[in-house]
Design a protein around this nucleic acid. Structure first.
Lengths: 374, 374
DNA sequence: CTGAAAGCGCTTACAG
DNA sequence: CTGAAAGCGCTTACAG
């Protein structure tokens, strides 16, 4: 039983006495060395394969490893060497497909590079990110990948920069994935996808179809992603000399539920005025909006067009299939670990940035607005 | 640049010379101790809070920690102490909702217990599980949680048992989540959900509705989960003295795609005979089947009823909402880490098993079979 | 190609 | 309540 401090209570047994059932006792390099009749240095060298070793010697060591069932201790290795072969990733919520797919990319790339992956979710806890960075720092992760848009106030960015520097001193790297770069000189990489550009492109598509009153729903106001997407939305209007009715911008959560409820409400009370298209801040919001429209007796895309952002699988699976901005989520995850690896190669390299492309995917949820009432 | 062996090449710089930019050099307990004017033992004690320390002493140490920006090295800690405060989880594919939700539960429970989570996916690679268990063993994870049904041949189970014993010697535990227990005496826990019972219950529900020809689609034949579900399907028929037409059992992948393709094909060539209901081996398969039925002009549930298994969110989101067997996925993940923690508390406890409940959720995809053609 | 030895950064009996 | 010292299990210059 753990004590209140969470430490195991002292057992009355003599320490380090192997259990009866232990069988071949847990082996160490020391024991492998003895069994093979060589030094521990030699064992280490055959294990790591990073140094020439005579064939016969190698054979003896491998034999000993096998018969003793030796499994290297990664902690001893990490302490004596320098790399941990571990990357950490911090997301908001692993069950949100946006994060799941990025985490998936991180995991695959890490696996290909022979690294293991520590995944952590903040679940929206304030300061959670910072604590998790610290926890991953304790683990001396080779890289810490922070995914998703962040709150964007100066005090917070300063704290993040401090963490990045602390990590940098350790030879590790903070990689921001989908969040603006920190100030110059801070050792942090960034994997960037163009929120403003994507939002601009899909808004322009809607405008080109003839829509003039587009409702923008969802997205937490403090998040950098949200701000960037709204900026693209506005810029597309501005390029055509159009003004946007502020009532049409309805920030909120990034959830299906929010999309559903807010659109249902606006349809009910009309407080945003009329609209012929809905731009969901992400696919979840858009799908929620579609449901609200359907329940109000409106047809998509005949009466109202709907678009989303991210292109999670759901977007292609709903009916009608959703027009949206495609983000290469898995690739973003892969890019993040590749960047970290590249960065570690440099003795004291500067901040690096990697951009991934984005494009509009036109499916069945968009059409020209209905002809004005006769 | 890594050399071909994957090790960093020697740099010409003198080792351990701090970079100009290092700022407050990476601190160690040693340095914290000096700064605070105490011994390293004392620093360790205030850091771990597991031993009485004078208030004033504690204050000095905490102060030193803060000004030096000290971050404990988890590897040194793991090597000197015994626990790593890390759990490992192995799934087949993190983007499959079944696994995502279990992983989510593992992660939350681990976080609540102050542990970090190493998550690994096999992506269906043969032997992947075994290699990943070894990798997690190297990391000395406090527990290794293996999720999902496994291939069920004796040779494989023997290998698994070997791994479990090796882990056990280390004081760590293998926990099988949704897979049959290993032989007696092997130090492995299991979190069990009743596949046979669930399949029996939902089949019985369909039978009670009047269906007599139910198509069972999907599920890889070698997997223990599949075998258990089919067993439940058969037993439900047997209880009513009904025979099952073997052509109605169509194993295959656990995917939406397979469900779609196989049902489409059977509808085309009629090689399974008639059927009035479809039992998808999991929700994905069931949703694929619904799509195939719809495209063939059949209506669900009016012409054909459809049920699934697992109750992932998709099940409630499709139209019509899917009748299925509910599995408490998140809870299963949580149970797995709780079990591991409990097991570690015991000096040499026996194999433990935890059962989680299962129940049928009736939604809109089921109805009595259509009346026989007039 | 190989070995002896130092050292990585902690924790934990042991002894006050 | 505190400290001196051993030891956890590896890797890596250094020296042949």
């Amino acid at each position: 039983m753990p004590t209140p401090q969470g430490k195991p209570s002292r057992t009355p047994r003599a320490p380090r006495t192997p259990r009866e059932t232990d069988g071949p006792k847990r082996a160490t390099v020391q024991e492998v060395a003895e069994a093979a009749g060589v030094s521990t240095a030699t064992v280490s060298r055959v294990l790591n394969g990073n140094y020439p070793v005579a064939t016969e010697t190698r054979r003896k060591v491998e034999q000993a490893v096998r018969t003793l069932g030796y499994v290297v201790n990664a902690h001893a290795r990490a302490l004596a060497g320098s790399r941990t072969r571990t990357v950490g990733i911090i997301v908001q919520d692993i069950i949100d497909p946006f994060y799941t797919f990025i985490a998936h990319g991180v995991q695959r790339q890490a696996a290909e590079d022979g690294k293991l992956c520590l995944v952590c979710s903040t679940y929206g806890v304030v300061g959670g990110e910072l604590d998790l960075i610290d926890a991953l720092h304790e683990q001396r992760a080779d890289a810490v990948i922070l995914v998703g848009g962040g709150v964007d106030d100066p005090a917070y960015r300063r704290k993040l920069a401090d963490r990045a520097r602390a990590l940098g001193r350790e030879g590790s790297w903070l990689v921001l994935c989908g969040r603006p770069a920190l100030e110059d000189g801070v050792p942090a990489g960034v994997v960037d996808y163009d929120n403003t550009g994507g939002a601009h492109a899909i808004t322009e598509y809607l405008l080109g179809l003839g829509h003039r009153r587009i409702l923008y729903v969802g997205g937490p106001e403090q998040l950098s992603v949200h701000q960037a997407r709204v900026a693209g939305f506005r810029r597309a209007h501005a390029s055509r000399g159009l003004e946007v009715d502020e009532r049409l911008i309805q920030p909120g959560a990034f959830s299906r539920r929010f999309g559903y409820e807010r659109v249902a409400q606006l349809l009910r009370d009309g407080s945003a005025g009329e609209f012929t298209a809905v731009f969901g801040a992400n696919d979840g919001v858009a799908v929620g909006a579609m449901q609200a429209l359907r329940e109000a007796g409106l047809r998509v895309p005949r009466d109202v067009s709907v678009v989303g952002y991210d292109d999670i699988p759901l977007a292609a699976e709903v009916t009608p299939a959703l027009t949206t901005v495609h983000l290469p989520l898995e690739q973003m995850g892969r890019e993040a670990v590749r960047l970290a690896v590249a960065l570690r190669g440099e003795s004291d390299g500067p901040t690096g940035t990697r951009h991934v492309g984005t494009h509009v995917v036109i499916r069945d949820s968009t059409a020209p607005p209905p002809a004005p009432a006769p």
